Amino acid sequence: MREGPACGIERPIALQALAGDVAVEPPATLRCETALQLARWMEKTVKPALAVAMPGETIAGLRQASGYVCRNRNNTEEGKISEHAFGNAVDIAGFTLKSGKTIDIRPAERDSTLDGAFQRAITEAACLYFTTVLDPGSDAAHENHLHLDVKERRGGYRYCW
């Protein structure tokens, strides 16, 4: 899949669901490695954290805000190309639970509720699976979602903000 001189994915996948019938809404076009880390994060972090924060609730859907898209970082006119342009990134806007409740990603740094604790826990743990994690506290461009990407960096460096 190629778009323009710089964007594309060698072997794209259309991710429609994750294990346990968790719908990806809308489906996301990603590289396999990005989808794999998303699945690992969901199984090993998000689902267990939800079980502690909201006993009896289960995740029915993962609301993604951006998978593959040929653009610059933060949708700027000039600058570096986003990891979204290579299928390396996915933006998570929230979750839909089987009960119908929704959990939106939002600024939660000072939220002392279980919803806030849940969001902080899954955000911190995301850096175990992704090399870049940007949350609503990182900058204005990420106020309503988590940016997760698998960009390879020298020395295994990770950027978690």
Rank of each mutant, 00 (worst) to 15 (best):
Gly8Thr: 09
Ile9Val: 15
Glu10Phe: 05
Glu10Pro: 09
Glu10Ile: 12
Glu10Asn: 09
Arg11Cys: 03
Ile13Ala: 07
Ile13Phe: 00
Ala14Leu: 15
Ala14Gln: 15
Leu15Ser: 04
Gln16Phe: 08
Ala17Tyr: 11
Leu18Glu: 05
Ala19Val: 12
Ala19Asn: 14
Gly20Val: 13
Asp21Ala: 14
Val22Trp: 12
Val22Met: 12
Val22His: 08
Ala23Arg: 15
Ala23Asp: 12
Val24Asp: 10
Pro27Tyr: 08
Pro27Asp: 08
Ala28Ser: 13
Ala28Phe: 02
Thr29Cys: 11
Arg31Gln: 15
Glu33His: 13
Thr34Lys: 09
Ala35Phe: 04
Ala35Met: 11
Gln37Thr: 14
Ala39Lys: 12
Arg40Asn: 13
Trp41Asp: 08
Met42Val: 07
Glu43Cys: 04
Glu43Arg: 14
Lys44Ser: 09
Thr45Leu: 08
Thr45Val: 15
Val46Leu: 07
Val46Arg: 01
Pro48Gly: 09
Ala49Leu: 07
Ala49Tyr: 04
Leu50Tyr: 14
Leu50His: 13
Ala51Phe: 10
Ala51Arg: 15
Pro55Cys: 04
Pro55Gln: 07
Gly56Tyr: 04
Gly56Cys: 05
Glu57Lys: 07
Glu57Ala: 06
Thr58Cys: 03
Thr58Leu: 06
Ile59Ser: 01
Ala60Tyr: 05
Gly61Val: 07
Arg63Cys: 00
Gln64Asp: 01
Ser66Gln: 12
Ser66Met: 10
Gly67Asp: 04
Gly67Glu: 02
Tyr68Ile: 02
Tyr68Trp: 07
Val69Leu: 03
Val69Thr: 06
Val69Ala: 06
Cys70Tyr: 02
Arg71Trp: 00
Asn72Phe: 00
Asn72Lys: 09
Asn72Tyr: 02
Arg73Asp: 00
Thr76Ile: 01
Thr76Gly: 00
Thr76His: 03
Thr76Cys: 00
Glu77Pro: 06
Glu78Leu: 10
Ser82Ile: 00
Glu83Cys: 00
Glu83Gly: 02
His84Asp: 03
His84Leu: 01
Ile92Ala: 03
Ala93Trp: 02
Phe95Lys: 05
Thr96Asn: 04
Thr96Ala: 09
Thr96Asp: 10
Ser99Gln: 03
Asp104Pro: 02
Asp104Leu: 13
Ile105Glu: 04
Ile105Arg: 01
Arg106Ser: 10
Arg106Cys: 02
Pro107Cys: 05
Ala108Gly: 01
Asp111Cys: 13
Asp111Arg: 12
Asp111Gln: 14
Asp111Leu: 07
Thr113Trp: 12
Gly116Ser: 13
Ala117Thr: 10
Ala117Ile: 01
Ala117Tyr: 01
Arg120Gln: 15
Arg120Phe: 00
Glu124Ser: 15
Glu124Pro: 05
Ala125Pro: 05
Leu128Asp: 15
Tyr129Pro: 13
Phe130Ser: 08
Phe130Asn: 09
Thr132Cys: 09
Val133Pro: 10
Val133Ser: 08
Leu134Ile: 01
Pro136Lys: 07
Gly137Asp: 09
Ser138Arg: 07
Ala140Ser: 11
Ala141Asn: 14
His142Asp: 03
Glu143Tyr: 05
Glu143Gly: 06
Glu143Asn: 08
Asn144Glu: 04
Leu146Cys: 02
His147Ala: 06
Leu148Glu: 10
Leu148Asn: 01
Lys151Cys: 03
Lys151Gly: 09
Glu152Tyr: 01
Glu152Ala: 11
Arg154Asp: 13
Gly156Trp: 00
Tyr157Ala: 06
Tyr157Lys: 10
Arg158His: 04
Tyr159Asn: 12
